[in-house]
Computed example of a mutant assay.
Amino acid sequence: MSSRTRRASVLPALGLTLALLAAGCGSDSPATTAAAEKPAAPASSSAAATAISITDPWIKAADKGMTAAFGTLVNNTDKPLTIVGASSDVSAMELHEMTMKDGKMIMRPKEGGFVLPAKGRHELSPGGDHLMFMALTAPVKAGDEVAFTLKLADGGTVPFTAVAKPYSGAEESYAPDGGMDMHE
């Protein structure tokens, strides 16, 4: 793991640790799936960090260009939450979805963001909704830990870390015009 990825993953982990300490330190669940109390209004970054968790986060290993992150987003609150953006030190990011257009599967920015229903889940998966890395600044190798920050509609932020994995999937080829060719 490079010093860049170590450094990038320490700050979000520290923020999540502090958020869990502030929430009472008594959870017997892992940090990535910790249940949370309702966030105070207005939502702070630490409250948002406990409001949403992600299970099985991972990023597709890539040497250059674009890649994507996946997992299951979990809303631990009694109200719907909307993720409107994402950021990372390794690339500009966008929220993306896959949809059919003129008989062709295309990838495009997700209008309105990802809505997580109260106490609900939202799947990020290859061929579906995902967190898109637009132009990697360095290779993401299998085993690297990559830090992300999700941005919520209420202004809160949620840091997390995903491990890079090799994945060929359907051997998607992302085109700059938003189209996506599926090779079988």
Results as ranks from 00 to 15, higher is better:
Ala40Tyr: 05
Tyr167Leu: 12
Ala62Arg: 13
Met66Arg: 14
Val10His: 07
Asp154Phe: 02
Leu11Trp: 12
His130Ala: 15
Ala138Ile: 00
Ser2Trp: 01
Ala175Met: 11
Thr82Gly: 01
Ala36Leu: 03
Ala118Asn: 01
Ser45Ile: 09
Leu131Val: 15
Thr157Gly: 09
Met180Cys: 14
Ala13Trp: 06
Ser44Asp: 14
Gly15Thr: 07
Val163Leu: 08
Pro159Cys: 06
Leu11Pro: 05
Ala23Trp: 02
Ala36Trp: 04
Lys119Ile: 00
Pro166Met: 02
Lys119Phe: 00
Gly155Glu: 03
Thr149Leu: 04
Met100Asp: 14
Ser3His: 13
Leu14His: 12
Val158Ile: 09
Ala138Gly: 03
Asp177Thr: 03
Glu145Ile: 05
Lys151Phe: 00
Glu37Gly: 10
Ala13Cys: 09
Ala19Lys: 03
Ser173Asn: 10
Gly26Val: 04
Thr67Glu: 01
Val163Cys: 01
Thr50Cys: 14
Ala47Phe: 08
Val163Tyr: 01
Ile106Tyr: 00
Asp56Lys: 12
Asp129Pro: 11
Leu11His: 10
Ser53Cys: 08
Ser125Gly: 07
Gly120Pro: 09
Ala31Arg: 05
Met93Arg: 01
Leu73Asn: 04
Leu18Cys: 10
Ala62Phe: 03
Gly128Phe: 14
Ser9His: 08
Arg7Gln: 10
Gly26Cys: 09
Asp181Tyr: 01
Glu145Met: 13
Gly156Val: 06
Gly127Trp: 11
Pro166Lys: 10
Gly127Glu: 10
Lys104Cys: 01
Leu11Ile: 14
Leu73Val: 08
Met182Asn: 08
Glu97Gly: 06
Ile59Pro: 07
Asp63Gly: 15
